[in-house]
Design a protein around this nucleic acid. Structure first.
Lengths: 192, 192
DNA sequence: ACGGTTAGGGACCGATAGGTCCATAATGGT
DNA sequence: ACCATTATGGACCTATCGGTCCCTAACCGT
């Protein structure tokens, strides 16, 4: 056979994701990526094909990771608490990572979606996914009584999804934890 | 005396604003700016000092323009209708301009605010300005009866401000008019 | 009419962008 | 032990980035 790959593809992809998440597509240079991923240009091109393709792969890795995490959090009862934890994680991420990253999908809605249909599709797919998950969870919460507001679950979910970019954008822009928590509580209060 | 400037500074600034609004800071090259503004490099540097300074000036021009427009719209009675028109303008802009521009302040909250304090300050200042204007208008609407929801005006305003980035991000990402109108109606329904 | 002064066109700069390519290193099968 | 095969490092490429500079053009007061 031949010489084996010296790096772990999915690990390298994860590193690329972190950089793209933080700095966006244009804001990330090949050099940044090579340093973060710890490999050389030829390896990168052999394994991923180019900056744009790498970006798409990294973005998809991000989306899958977050989708799984969302399902996990929203799956745990009671519904009202689960939803609160889903949103509170946004604030927690700011403090945990120490950086202003926000949500990569929202960031890309602003940066690339206007001129890249592949990104646009993914962004709206993500919003739809969140909306569906929230709708199901809210319906469950109304059934089990943890959510008092009797409005249509889908309507409440759409309102939360509308507030989601607000929170994420504030997080990315560097809004303090106080500001973020206020916004978060306000948004959650629509469930009561 | 000397040779007179051949271009109108504020007109050129407006053109720069349009380009920055559409493509962001990193996404706009000096060449793009020169073409849009219709002047040469030396003129640009003499008049504005450099890309970053030009950007700040263009951003401030945008912010002033929009602030004035907001006051104008929100000042006209009845309050509920004024607020509706304020938000409906977001959708209208998509269709009128034919482009996905969103709100430059929100776009910059994502692009530059995380690493540029000057931008961050402006972004949060803008959000505060919108919140204040909405608070006043909602209070007026409650007094005159056009707004039924009896909750604190400032609380309602903060909810609208939280939804504002949601609308703007969807507009920028290329959400269709249907999607935008749905979101808009949903957000406005919190006033009833 | 001319001269002092400022605006403007464009050549030029080093740095860096993303991307290609090739020589070399490292492997596993025979 | 050697060879076919593949991964890797890094030299190299062109295009473009933001920015500087200088020479000429255009003007106004005298």
């Amino acid at each position: 056979m031949a010489r084996p790959q010296e790096f772990n593809v999915s690990e390298a992809l994860h590193q690329a994701m972190e950089v793209f998440w933080q700095n966006g597509f244009e804001g990330t240079s090949l050099t940044d990526l090579l340093k973060a991923m710890g490999l050389s240009k030829s390896s990168l091109y052999a394994a991923f094909g180019g900056k744009h393709e790498l970006f798409l792969a990294a973005f998809d890795a991000y989306r899958e990771e977050r989708a799984r995490e969302m399902s996990r959090i929203l799956g745990h009862a009671p519904a009202r608490e689960a939803i609160e934890r889903f949103f509170r994680k946004i604030v927690a991420d700011v403090e945990h990572s120490g950086a202003a990253r926000g949500c990569m999908s929202i960031n890309q809605a602003v940066e690339m979606a206007p001129r890249d249909p592949e990104i646009r599709r993914r962004v709206f797919q993500d919003l739809a996914l969140i909306e569906e998950a929230l709708t199901r969870t809210i319906a469950r919460g109304q059934a089990e009584g943890s959510i008092k507001n009797p409005d249509e679950a889908s309507k409440l979910a759409r309102l939360l999804v509308l507030g989601f970019p607000g929170l994420q954008v504030m997080a990315r822009a560097g809004g303090g934890r106080e500001r973020l928590n206020d916004a978060l509580n306000l948004l959650l209060s629509t469930l009561d």
